[in-house]
Nucleic acid binder design. Structure first.
Lengths: 224, 224
DNA sequence: ATACGCTAACGTACTTTGTACGAAGGTGCC
DNA sequence: GGCACCTTCGTACAAAGTACGTTAGCGTAT
C-alpha cells in the first residue's frame, strides 16, 4: 500500500505542487494577497511552513503560478466564429475572473515571464483577431485597447472599498465628509445624484465601454 | 537663531513631513516600491529609521500620500473648453505620470480613501464632462471608460520587462524560447512580424485606443 | 538664571515574514 | 539488514514595521 493512511484516522493527503498552489489560491481568495504568507499557507495545508519549499522554489514562484492559474480561468475566444461576440464573451469572462480574484490584478505588474495559460490566451485572442481580418497592426492596436480596458476596469473595481451593489451609501459617507463644504461640487453632485442611488453597481458600467470599443473596432475593420 | 546650523559644517535641514514624502518619492522612483522601506527612506533622508515616525503615522500613510502626490502631477482638464482636446490632454498627462512613476499603478488598488489631489482631479474631470453636455449617466460611463483605459494601459506598460523602444528583441528571446516549437504560432508570428521590429514602442499604441474612445464618446454625445 | 515642558530625533527591542541549512522519518530495492 | 531516496520538519537568521521610552536642545515663566 502506498497510501499514506494509517490507523485511527485519515492521514492528510500527500503534499503536491498542485495542492500547494490550490491552497495559495484559496488563502488569497479568502483574505487577499496580504494574508498569503508561507506560514498561513502551511496552516491551510495542514503542514509546517518549510514543507512548502520542497514543492516550490520560493514565494515568487507561487505568485507567478497563481497568475497563470487565474489566466487559465478566463474563457478563450473561438477563432473563426464571429469575432465581436467571441471577444465580448472573453472580456466579460476576464472581468468576472478578476473580480473573483481581486488580488490578481496587482500581480500583473510584476513583469515576470508569462506562464503557459497566459501564452495560450494571448495566442488564441490574436488568432481570433487575425482570422477576423485584422491586420497585424490593427491586431496590436485592438489587443492593447481591449486589454487595457479590461485590466483597468478590474483595477478600478479592486480599488473600490466595497463590492457589488451593496450599500454604496455607507462607505461613501466618510468620503463625503472629506469633501468638505463646497469643495468638489461636481463630484458631490454626481455622487448623490447617481453613484449613491440605490441599486447602482459600478460593475454595470463595464458593458457600455466594452460595446463602445467593439463598435469602434468594427468601424476600423471596415475601413482597413 | 532658530537655524539648526552649528559650527564646522552644515547641519542637515530639519525633517518635515514634506521632506519625508519627497524622499519616499525619490526612493520609489529609483528602485521601485520594493526598495522603499522605512530604513532605506531614513538613509535617503540622512536620519535614523524611527525619526520618520515623528512626521508620519506609519508606512501606509506614506503610500497614501504618494498616491496623492502622483495624482497631483496629472494635468487637469479645463472645464468649458473643448472637452475632447481637454480630456485627450489629461489622458496623455496621466499616462506620462504613471510611466514616470511605474510603481504608482500598484498602489491604486489599495482602496484607501482618496486624497485632496485625487478628489480635485475627479471633480474637475466631471465638471469638464458635464459642461460639455454629458448627462450624469453618460458622465459616469465616460469617466469609467476613460480611466479604465488609462489605468489599464499604464498597468500593461508597468508589466513590460523593458521600457520604451529599447531593444525589445533582447528581452523577447527568453520568452520566445518558452513558446516552444509550434505552440502559440499566432503569438510568435505577431511577435516577430510586429512587436520585435526595430523602433516598435508599445507606448505608441496609446493614441489609437484613446482616439477611438473619444470618437465613440462624441458619437454618444450626439445621440444623447 | 533656573526649572519646566515641548519638540524632534533616536536606541532598543519585539513581531512578522521569507527562507537557508541540515536532520529525521519513512519507503522501496538490493 | 543496509542503503538511497523522497518528503517533511526544526532551528535559526535577516529584513522590515513599529511600540515604547529616552535624550538633547530650546523657549518661556518664574
Amino acid at each position: 500500500m502506498s497510501e499514506p493512511v494509517s490507523e485511527g484516522g485519515q492521514r492528510r493527503a500527500r503534499l503536491t505542487r498542485e495542492r500547494v498552489l490550490q491552497g495559495a489560491l484559496s488563502v488569497a481568495d479568502s483574505g487577499g494577497l496580504g494574508s498569503l504568507t508561507i506560514r498561513s499557507l502551511a496552516k491551510e495545508l495542514g503542514v509546517k511552513p518549510m514543507s512548502v519549499y520542497y514543492h516550490v522554489a520560493n514565494k515568487d514562484e507561487i505568485l507567478d503560478a497563481l497568475v497563470d492559474i487565474v489566466f487559465g480561468e478566463i474563457d478563450l475566444p473561438v477563432p473563426g466564429r464571429d469575432w465581436r461576440s467571441e471577444l465580448r464573451r472573453r472580456a466579460h469572462s476576464a472581468r468576472q475572473v478578476l473580480a473573483r480574484h481581486r488580488w490578481a490584478i496587482g500581480l500583473l505588474e510584476s513583469g515576470s515571464s508569462p506562464g503557459p495559460a497566459n501564452l495560450r490566451h494571448h495566442d488564441t485572442v490574436i488568432a481570433t483577431l487575425r482570422e477576423a481580418g485584422f491586420s497585424a497592426e490593427m491586431t496590436a492596436h485592438a489587443y492593447a485597447l481591449i486589454d487595457s480596458y479590461v485590466y483597468g476596469f478590474a483595477l478600478q473595481e479592486a480599488a473600490l472599498p466595497f463590492e457589488g451593489p451593496e450599500s454604496v451609501g455607507e462607505v461613501a459617507e466618510p468620503i463625503m465628509e472629506l469633501m468638505g463644504a463646497g469643495e468638489y461640487p461636481h463630484l458631490v453632485e454626481m455622487a448623490t445624484s447617481y453613484y449613491m442611488q440605490p441599486g447602482y453597481d459600478f460593475g454595470d458600467e463595464f458593458v457600455f465601454g466594452l460595446d463602445l470599443i467593439l463598435d469602434g473596432l468594427e468601424r476600423s475593420l471596415g475601413l482597413g
